[in-house]
Design a protein around this nucleic acid. Structure first.
Lengths: 112, 112
DNA sequence: ACATTGAATGAGCAAATACGTATATACTTG
DNA sequence: CAAGTATATACGTATTTGCTCATTCAATGT
């Protein structure tokens, strides 16, 4: 295991699917809201400002992708981040984007 | 800079866009093909087995996202990976997916 | 059993996107 | 300048996906 690259076609599809799951603003908001601990659907709906139906749908997508876990407690369902790599991924992307933006800013300054 | 989470709405959109760029199998194949050095469009078209038009389109998407850089040499255009975080991202995702799949395999075994 | 509350799902619509075919652009060479 | 080659783009189409509204499902309390 872990020969890493190059990935075969099926592996590529799976990786692409994982990125796709993280490619929606509302889902990123949900994930982010869960970084500091589990929350139920009502809380998440209030925090992210979406409709309950839409939040619920996105949560199912994240569950199917094993990004989140859920726990039922009476009428409520609590969600939490299941995959520890998620925050690392977001951190990496943020760092890289910062760098790119700084470079662009530098070029902008240089063109004064 | 680098306060990291929580991200504001605009930052969320940008991060989502970055993930979206990585969420297409053909684009992942292109990126992967470039991990071992720059290649021109004809080579990439042959390696990935798509039409030239489609490859070219995906390359433009990756350029716009600053994932790749390009270099013209006569009639040919050579592309290379510009962002070093990309291979780290793919590595992280692969590692996490391996783990998930192993867990599923373990549960499957446990249910024997 | 019924009403109430929290969460999930079905149907329909609008927007985004990936693809192929055809065409255009850029550069080189005769 | 004409022809040829490598790459990019325009256009039309099919598929996917995200959203809302309405409804259903699940669990609790009366």
């Amino acid at each position: 295991m872990s020969r890493q690259f190059p990935l075969n076609d099926q592996a590529i599809e799976i990786v692409a699917r994982r990125f796709a799951v993280l490619a929606e603003p509302m889902r990123l908001r949900l994930i982010q809201a869960l970084f500091d601990g589990e929350k139920n659907v009502t809380e998440l709906t209030a925090l992210t400002g979406g409709t309950q139906a839409n939040i619920s749908r996105h949560l199912q997508t994240l569950i199917a992708a094993h990004v989140l876990d859920r726990r039922k407690e009476g009428l409520q369902v609590f969600y939490r981040v299941a995959d520890p790599s998620i925050s690392k991924l977001c951190g990496l992307v943020c760092g890289s984007l910062e760098k790119t933006l700084n470079q662009q800013a530098a070029h902008f300054d240089a063109g004064r």
